[in-house]
Design a protein around this nucleic acid. Sequence first.
DNA 1: ATGAAAGCGCTAACAT
DNA 2: ATGTTAGCGCTTTCAT
Lengths: 342, 342
Amino acid sequence: MVNMQKIAALAGVSIATVSRALNKSGPVKEATRARILQLAGEYQYTPNPIARSLSTQKTDTIGLILPEMADEFFMDIIRGIDEEAYRANRFLLVSSFHTQRDIAATLLEFMSSGRVDGVILMAPEGKNGLVETLRRSRRPLVLLNPPGNAQEFVYFKINNFQGAYAIVEHLFGHGYHRIGMITGPNGNIDADERLNGCLEAGRQHDLPIAPSFIMPGDFSARSGYYAFMRLMSQMEKPEAVFAANDMMAMGAYQAARSLNLRIPQDIALAGFDDIFLSQLLTPRLTTVHVPIVELGSKAVRYLLQMINGEVDPSAPYHEELTAGLVIGGSCGCESVAAAVPL
Amino acid sequence: MVNMQKIAALAGVSIATVSRALNKSGPVKEATRARILQLAGEYQYTPNPIARSLSTQKTDTIGLILPEMADEFFMDIIRGIDEEAYRANRFLLVSSFHTQRDIAATLLEFMSSGRVDGVILMAPEGKNGLVETLRRSRRPLVLLNPPGNAQEFVYFKINNFQGAYAIVEHLFGHGYHRIGMITGPNGNIDADERLNGCLEAGRQHDLPIAPSFIMPGDFSARSGYYAFMRLMSQMEKPEAVFAANDMMAMGAYQAARSLNLRIPQDIALAGFDDIFLSQLLTPRLTTVHVPIVELGSKAVRYLLQMINGEVDPSAPYHEELTAGLVIGGSCGCESVAAAVPL
DNA sequence: ATGAAAGCGCTAACAT
DNA sequence: ATGTTAGCGCTTTCAT
């Protein structure tokens, strides 16, 4: 193991000088620095980040805690976060996907242990006294799509309400009067907001959504399938169905096929998320695009500002990213999008 | 910051005793230990892993380096690895997804810096002297689906050849004589092996695949779309098409639809990977299941053995996981699977 | 411009 | 059973 000690000996200087030369953290005679750099290269010296961390109390690492559910959506958010972290020369310590795992424990372990400089936490379901746990956090923390009771923290979120409102309004624009919705899991903030956006759109257009047209789902394609089945097995059937995410919409496609219902002629369909696969459906799914990669980048950038003290880490800060409509053929629009394959 | 020093003072013992009590690394009188544990809980003491790492030269962290391409497939592999790492109380330092990033640099940074105890590297395309770089690695390293010139290392891989052979054989079993293939990117080991498996199956059945029926793709749905289009625009058309991964098969579904070709009546289709979405296609895609979660778990378990010195870290070790067929309706089989929705 | 030395928080001999 | 002490490799005052 080649360490500073060795380089220092080789260069005939003290380790302090080596440190200064390498970090440009103090004056070093040009000749000395050149010699040190030369030696460092020659012996493939790499500073030990552990030792540095112990000394500086910084790790150049950010923690990322994701919920158990892991679909394509999460791949994108990791991507956004990873790219931004890389750009900033930070490492990413990931923890995720465990049903059985207690988010709180993970978080606190990350936080109090000095393993990371800050944490990005995606926890759309603020159960088990999550907020109390977060309060005990001693390091910068950024929430992603947080539960409603997290106002005191820093968070970035998708404007689900607005997105859902917009897409339901679009469905009304097609002249559908009876709109059904397949909801996400109760208590999930994204799911709840999307439901509210839908309901509000109904109220604003004097066509309130009938309670029997609100069918519970859990964000899985399977649940979308069955929810759609149940919606269509009622005496009075909806003319259009809004699924709270694309996965459930895909389940609904399946169900529509097995019922021999044509989309959109017999039943219009819309989703939420704009996952890659919604493009592959025929007709292309009308959905709401969530700028998920951007969400991740913004979270990282803000977190780094908190870490660097450029913003007050204890001050709440909230940002909502607008979700835009993606019009496919499933809502009844002439499907322009489908003309351009993939 | 509450550290050992403080707990020791509070308990009226030395920090050595605290360390022993907490780590059960030496004898401590029961009463003393109880007092220390009590105090630690009270003051919410968490040992500083950085300091511990510096002292023990272990980090309890595994590095994970993934290629840029990030589809659902990778989500699964991260899941497998993450779960296993969690089970073993290890952390995961992830680095991934950057086109521009030099894998070698990342690897060496991980390795030589003491940030991780070992690395799992997924690099199906051994370009740019990858092997030479790997040789310089000073820590345990496990490869996933490695390039062909990596025999000297430890790796776990999917048996792509066998999987491709089996599925093409299955297509022959349906009586198709003209089989087309959409390949993956050249130089990618998975892609190459799948191609070879397909070709070999053709030879063994005295129905060699015609060169004009081998259409290049790049694993993206888009490339699958166009490759399929080109395959079907030839004078002589294949009766069945094997896409080297499910994503391209999905593109082929799209293309088939826009050509008004029914699957499987007009054209049979098969893929590889068994990604979640292949279940959602109608008819369900016939594909090859790759035990990807298992691949990740095995890699972690073996890596930990290397780290713990339970196996020789410098000895090559290879394991190939068998890929099994998943029969859907797209190949012409009566689609049993489709009866059970999703 | 450079060096000496004191930590950072913890582990692990070694001593008692 | 417990304490003392020497590191782990680096950063950072404070001298010189």
